[in-house]
Amino acid sequence: MLKHSLCKRTLSSALFSLLVLAGCEKKAETPAENQSSQSSLPIPVKVVVVNMFEIGEDEGDTAGEFQLWKERQKLSQRFPFPQSHHDLFLNPETGVLGMVTGMGTNKSSSAVMALGLDPRFDLRKAYWLVAGISGFDPADASIGSAAWAEWLVDGDLMHEIDSRELPEDWSTGIFPLFSKGPYPEKRPPNQGEVFRINGQLTEWAFQLTKDIDLGDDETIAENRKKLTDFPNAQRKPFVLKGDNLAGMTFWHGDHLNRWANQWVDYWSEGQGSFVSSAMEDTGTAQSLAYLDRAGRADYNRLMVLRTASNFTVPHPGMTAAESLLSEGEDYAGLQLSLESAYRVGSRVVDTLVNDWDTYRDQMPYAANAH
């Protein structure tokens, strides 16, 4: 019963298989001319762009999350990163570093920790931008839309009883650790179930990007007309604020979508609102929290942007199983959501880099308040 959307971290189970077959785990070869020169001083990084997967090669084929960033941000200098999923790529002129964590909280947490402890880089002033696709609740947004999150809630740390064995007075078999049933009045201590990132930075990023034209797609525009029960899903792609549920299990369906909304509401104590379903962001936040404590990174400089490649509930007229299984036949939302992630995220990255003399030591929202 754990969960995730049609594509928990997005995409579909069929596309997930494609990623594996395409070589997500392979080690990139490292041309000698692109290897970093050994220096006694670590390289200061301005922005780390955190992507979660790539399809096939890093350039020149079907794009995953990393490819647009690598090409358009000119991330040309490769750094071998055998201690993690994928090599690192830097634009030495701008100080933007791109990483691909791999899919799931285990890979994101280990990748971010490995980077944070890497002596080749000085990340103490770096901003971290998670830019990835995900499943969205159609009550909140349309395919191709982009959501900035302030609350990151974990969908794995929990107790669970199969629904066929529930006590009669229980509404769900999913309930918090260190509790004696669903949604106790007093919330148990946070063991990593919820992370709140810098709300002022999130708001700054949202205000900076809220009016960006995200484009559209003819097929998607035609399909969204059918979503008569979801006015926001019928809109052209747009930028919003909305929170993220991260977990290792792909999930889909109306019942689990209700659970996701309730789980995020519960752990954020009514302050967060579930919009996007993905697999990595609590792992990334946990590692950055530890790295901050160690003086290696600044947790307050983390931003999380997710874009909608699919929905977390069935297509109209389909069961949850039919909807989930049919997703592998049509990836119409993939390219639009990848483009949205770049259009929105790159405005933030470029703004930070272009005024680095200010933003190196001062948060954008503080600097702009003067």
Score class of each variant (00 low, 15 high):
173 G>T: 10
120 R>A: 11
174 I>T: 10
123 L>M: 05
123 L>A: 03
110 S>E: 09
131 A>S: 15
109 S>C: 14
126 A>T: 08
137 D>Q: 08
154 D>S: 09
122 D>R: 05
179 S>Q: 10
148 W>G: 02
140 D>H: 09
105 T>S: 13
141 A>G: 10
119 P>R: 05
138 P>E: 03
111 A>Y: 04
121 F>K: 08
111 A>P: 01
141 A>Q: 04
125 K>Q: 15
170 W>I: 12
167 P>R: 07
133 I>T: 13
167 P>A: 11
175 F>D: 07
108 S>N: 03
138 P>K: 01
167 P>C: 09
166 L>W: 02
103 M>K: 11
160 E>Y: 07
164 R>H: 07
107 K>L: 15
168 E>V: 10
120 R>I: 01
156 D>Q: 11
118 D>C: 14
136 F>M: 05
120 R>E: 06
167 P>Q: 10
169 D>F: 11
142 S>N: 04
136 F>G: 11
119 P>H: 03
124 R>E: 08
111 A>F: 01
142 S>W: 06
125 K>C: 09
130 V>Q: 08
124 R>W: 06
162 D>C: 04
152 L>N: 06
178 F>I: 05
134 S>C: 15
121 F>S: 03
173 G>R: 08
131 A>T: 15
151 W>T: 01
177 L>Y: 10
101 T>F: 03
156 D>L: 10
162 D>H: 11
143 I>A: 06
116 G>W: 05
138 P>W: 01
146 A>P: 02
150 E>F: 00
134 S>K: 04
162 D>G: 02
126 A>P: 01
115 L>Q: 02
155 G>V: 03
164 R>T: 08
119 P>V: 13
119 P>T: 07
121 F>L: 09
140 D>R: 10
136 F>H: 09
120 R>W: 04
174 I>K: 12
170 W>Y: 13
